[in-house]
Every structure is written in C-alpha cells, then in structure tokens.
Simulated scan of single mutants.
Amino acid sequence: MIRTDKLRGIIAENGYSQKDIAKFIGVTPKTFYEKMKIGVFGSDEIQIMIEKLKIENPIEIFFAKE
C-alpha cells in the first residue's frame, strides 16, 4: 500500500506539483491522479520518484503496511 498522504507531502516539500511528477514519470497528470487514487505505481515510476524527490526511506511510503 502506498502512503499517498506522505508522498503528497514530499512532493510539496520539494517544490513540485503532482503535474510535475507526472511529467517526470512519463504519464499524463490525469493518469498520475488516478494512480495516486488507487495507490499503484510501477517499479520504474517509483524509482524515478525516489531519485527526483530524494526520498531517504522509500519503504515507509511505497511499501507501507496498513
């Protein structure tokens, strides 16, 4: 399960919008919003977000237990 609340916070802390992140991972903003809603991203997309957002502990965001 992805902690979308934490991911949104990190996106904002880095000065990006969700639209910016959509562009980084190569999807449309609409697709990004849908992925956030259902909490599912591909491994390549996760890797790009970890690098771009300098996420130090990706496990607590992308592989969180409920």
Rank of each mutant, 00 (worst) to 15 (best):
I2D: 01
I2Y: 07
I2T: 10
R3S: 07
R3L: 07
T4I: 15
T4W: 08
K6T: 06
K6Y: 07
K6Q: 07
K6I: 05
K6W: 04
K6P: 01
K6N: 04
L7D: 04
R8S: 06
I10D: 00
I10Y: 01
I11L: 01
I11Q: 00
A12F: 09
A12H: 09
A12R: 15
A12W: 10
E13K: 11
E13F: 03
E13C: 06
G15D: 07
G15Q: 07
Y16F: 14
Y16N: 03
Y16C: 03
Y16E: 02
Y16W: 14
S17K: 11
S17T: 14
S17G: 08
Q18E: 04
Q18P: 02
Q18S: 06
D20V: 02
D20P: 01
D20Q: 03
I21P: 00
I21A: 01
A22I: 07
A22N: 11
K23E: 08
F24R: 03
F24Q: 04
I25W: 08
I25H: 01
G26D: 07
T28E: 12
T28F: 11
P29C: 12
P29Q: 13
P29F: 11
P29H: 12
K30E: 13
K30S: 13
T31L: 13
T31G: 11
F32E: 00
F32G: 00
Y33T: 15
E34N: 14
E34T: 14
E34P: 09
K35W: 13
K35N: 14
K35D: 11
M36A: 05
M36D: 03
K37S: 12
K37V: 12
I38M: 12
G39T: 12
G39H: 12
G39M: 08
V40E: 15
F41K: 03
F41D: 01
F41Y: 12
G42Y: 15
G42W: 14
S43M: 13
D44H: 12
E45K: 08
I46K: 03
I46S: 00
I46Q: 02
Q47P: 06
Q47K: 12
Q47H: 09
I48M: 04
M49A: 03
M49C: 06
M49L: 08
M49Y: 02
I50F: 05
I50W: 05
E51H: 06
E51Y: 05
E51S: 07
E51W: 02
K52R: 15
K52C: 01
K52T: 03
K52F: 04
K52Y: 04
L53H: 00
L53T: 01
L53D: 00
K54I: 05
I55T: 03
E56Y: 11
E56D: 08
N57G: 06
P58C: 09
I59A: 11
I59Y: 14
I59H: 13
I59F: 14
I59W: 13
E60D: 13
E60Y: 05
F62A: 02
F62I: 06
K65H: 14
K65T: 13
K65G: 09
K65I: 11
K65C: 07
E66W: 11
